[in-house]
Design a protein around this nucleic acid. Structure first.
Lengths: 213, 213
DNA sequence: TCCGTGGTCAACCGTGCGGTGGACGGGAAG
DNA sequence: CTTCCCGTCCACCGCACGGTTGACCACGGA
């Protein structure tokens, strides 16, 4: 039996959710709360497996409440429910520790499925949210990337990586067991190939391109 | 009507998927292929909306095929199907441009649901994959961070940010409309407070701490 | 009121860095 | 075999950078 805590400031929403969930044989609504502070207060008492959390609420909003619930050791999982899937809400919710993110216009079947999945320790996001998360995941390497030129030789790439560790020419020379004149040559070629003025700008490119992180 | 292309080296799997999908009224299997190269060859001819792609295949594997399909302008969406949800597979598939990632033991209902979602331009991952993606998304800002000391004054932080853009002292001075002696002072204090030797190492900390990205 | 802090500026000096131009050897491609 | 690329190394020069010391002013709290 999956115990659920409903958190939403609108009475009507709580009632609707309760009707949907109580119709399921393996789900029971353990209780509800009208804001984040009340949710935290009822958490220990009720010991729910899953918390359905609205974001916009008076007193303490859903994000702060989510943060606290995930921080304490209760093990309760949080699904954030919201009307609009604004970017900042999504990222903030995930950063706060939410295991799920659904829109309020999601079909009931999706909601109960999400509750079962989350109770099982996995995570589930609304499809549009998933798309955005993937975009962010793959964009970081693609859009941000100033496309580090591949005509860097292996040795030059190696030197660039050490450059990006903050090492001086002599330190790099010691690390690679060569003379420091050699490193000066490599660094010079790296700067030329990257089209930058000094080692600082080379390091910037190294980080932005994902060569190091 | 959603047109699907099946790509899997095992005849039995293709047949099974075809039976599942043809039973749906709004989905039709446009064709199939036994490896990545064959899939690419049939892509233009068939013009599918969604490609169901296995990873392990002879000749050209599913990841490389996914990369190429997503790179050309056909607009076909790719769902990667695999038996094991190894980390490297997941990230590689998403990086290659896949819109979905499902395990082969997923129920048929989840598969057809995923096809409809992906055909609609959204994305859908297996729950366990979603959990991992979120973990990676939220871990990166927490573990990597060397905690940039907060005793930097606002102005010093501003200078550090410009340092991390690769600007020289004089350029920063022009940008902030102050003398370059001032910037030298600020830079010096930043180096001291960060406990580093030169501006390069300061930039490294700026990136690793997330002050810039 | 006084003092601490943050921001601004100055002069000096040593040095690591970047630019230029060259040299040598080895391996791969032609 | 010759050519080209890569990695290694050298010398010279100019300069931006980093370290040091000291100074002034505005603001806000003790």
């Amino acid at each position: 039996m999956i115990r659920v805590l409903l958190v939403d400031d609108e009475e009507l929403v709580r009632t609707g959710l309760r009707m949907i969930l109580d119709a399921e044989p393996d789900i029971t609504v353990a209780g509800d709360a009208a804001d984040g502070a009340a949710a935290l207060a009822r958490l220990e008492e009720l010991g729910p497996d899953v918390v359905l959390m609205d974001i916009r609420m008076p007193r303490m909003d859903g994000l702060e409440a989510t943060r606290r619930i995930c921080a304490d050791g209760s093990g309760a999982k949080v699904i954030v429910l919201t009307t609009f899937d604004l970017d900042e809400h999504v990222y903030a919710a995930l950063a706060a520790g939410a295991s799920g993110f659904l829109l309020k216009d999601a079909p009931a079947s999706q909601l109960v499925h999400a509750i079962r999945v989350v109770a099982g320790g996995e995570a589930l996001l609304a499809p549009s949210v998933t798309r955005r998360l993937i975009a962010r995941f793959t964009d970081q390497p693609s859009t941000t990337r100033p496309k580090l030129p591949t005509d860097l030789t292996p040795r030059e790439t190696e030197v660039l990586a050490l450059l990006a560790e903050g090492l001086s020419n002599t330190e790099i020379a010691e690390r690679l067991v060569v003379g420091d004149a050699t490193i000066k040559t490599h660094v010079g070629r790296v700067l030329m190939k990257l089209g930058v003025r000094d080692r600082v700008q080379a390091v910037v490119i190294a980080y932005r391109s994902g060569l190091v992180s």
